[in-house]
Amino acid sequence: MVTSVTSFGRSGAYDWMVQRVSAVVLAVYTIWLVGLTFFCPMDYAGWSELFSQTWVRIFSLMALIALGAHAWIGLWTVTTDYLKNGIVRFLAQAAAGAVMFIYAIWGVQILWGL
């Protein structure tokens, strides 16, 4: 069996499932956060109170980690479709991976106020 060395889970079926599970996490988080700010606009006190709660921080970090996997699979698909030069594609995928790693660590810092 030929598998791609740069795909997220080394298997198309695994990537397919991760893409969908992470999509559901991201959809629930997006609808919750956008819906919350849409229906009850908050001042600083309410907003910082919301993000001081442990479950909100965990939920937010879960969404950020889901985003990392989701964006990796999505960008891997797009880059393998359009970037035919191996070196260019590798560099683009490496840059995407680095950015997602930075997002995750930066997110931890923001959420836990480090």
Partner: peptide, 20 residues
């Protein structure tokens, strides 16, 4: 839209940082 969002996350995180 997916590629745009990947870039936009940087702005959203910066916004979240400033808001908190």
């Amino acid at each position: 839209s997916g590629v745009i969002l990947f870039v936009a996350i940087a702005f959203l995180l910066a916004g979240l940082d400033a808001s908190l």
